[in-house]
Write a protein that binds this DNA or RNA. Structure first.
Length: 257
DNA sequence: ATGGTGGCCCGGCCA
């Protein structure tokens, strides 16, 4: 079973590229972030024609998350299962092929002194509680998405350039750590210890070609899924070419139980 | 590295 996550930075702008990528890669489960569309605008029919059930949780201009699956899609759930509903469309969950799939678009944070950064930290705490309410760490769970956090300094091109900024600060890394401690592993990092592995590059300054990237899109799997993960990768080729997203898809292959 | 891009939608926000 091939699972993937991709921040597409507008599904409307990226629909052709996403469709081509799906046809080429044939993922069984695909988590999308930043669809930037309403539920009414979500092209569920086109995905159904390609063999995928889907659930979309959108708001329109910003955010928006979705799960596509061709191995079944049960118990679709927009937003958080515990606490107050988030005011933005940033998390959607479902069970696909026996795996509890949580697709998340974590707030950016903007800057450490911004209210949005405090929102990011609250969001991460609630995400941990959400996952704990929906799933058992002894079961099959994958939390995938754009976390807007580089877990360690090995996940950024130049740690010195980012001191004092979001994505690398200790509080957000700790908040991510509390999700990991609940019972998931960063399967891409487990398989690829080398530095220079990134999933996002700023559109500005030729960052992609200069290698100025960060690994902020993650696939976090429970122990049983991680143990059956046979392959994982970041498809940086998808960051090339005409009208790319600023994020690359991240993939993992899981053997049957 | 503090913005030279790109998405929303059409001036300004967001990443």
């Amino acid at each position: 079973m091939l699972l993937a996550t991709w921040n597409v930075n507008s599904l409307k702008a990226r629909f052709a590229r996403v469709s081509e990528w799906i046809a080429d890669v044939q993922p069984d489960v695909l988590m999308l972030q930043e669809t930037k569309m309403t539920d009414a605008a979500f092209p569920a029919g086109a995905f159904a024609a390609a063999g995928y059930e889907s659930v979309h949780f959108g708001e329109g201009r910003w955010n928006g998350v979705a799960i596509l699956s061709r191995v079944g899609l049960e118990s679709p759930r927009p937003n958080f299962a515990v606490g107050e509903a988030d005011f933005q469309a940033r998390v959607v969950s479902a069970t696909c092929g026996g795996i509890v799939v949580v697709c998340v678009y974590v707030p950016n944070g903007r800057s450490l002194d911004d209210d949005h950064y405090q929102y990011k930290l609250r969001f991460l705490a609630q995400l941990r509680d959400h996952v704990a309410a929906l799933a058992d760490p002894a079961g099959d769970v994958v939390i995938g998405g754009d976390f807007n956090i580089a877990p360690t300094d090995a996940d950024v091109w130049d740690p010195a350039a980012l001191v004092g900024q979001t994505h690398v600060s200790a509080p957000e890394r700790d908040a991510l750590g509390r999700i990991v401690e609940w019972g998931v592993r960063d399967v891409v990092r487990d398989a690829h210890p080398e530095p220079g592995l990134y999933s996002w590059w700023d559109y500005r300054n030729g960052s992609f070609h200069r290698g100025w990237g960060m690994r902020i899109d993650l696939l976090l799997a429970s122990a049983s899924v991680a143990a059956r993960t046979t392959w994982s990768a970041i498809d940086r080729n998808a960051r090339k070419g005409e009208q790319p997203s600023d994020h690359a898809p991240v993939l993992m292959e899981v053997a049957a139980r």
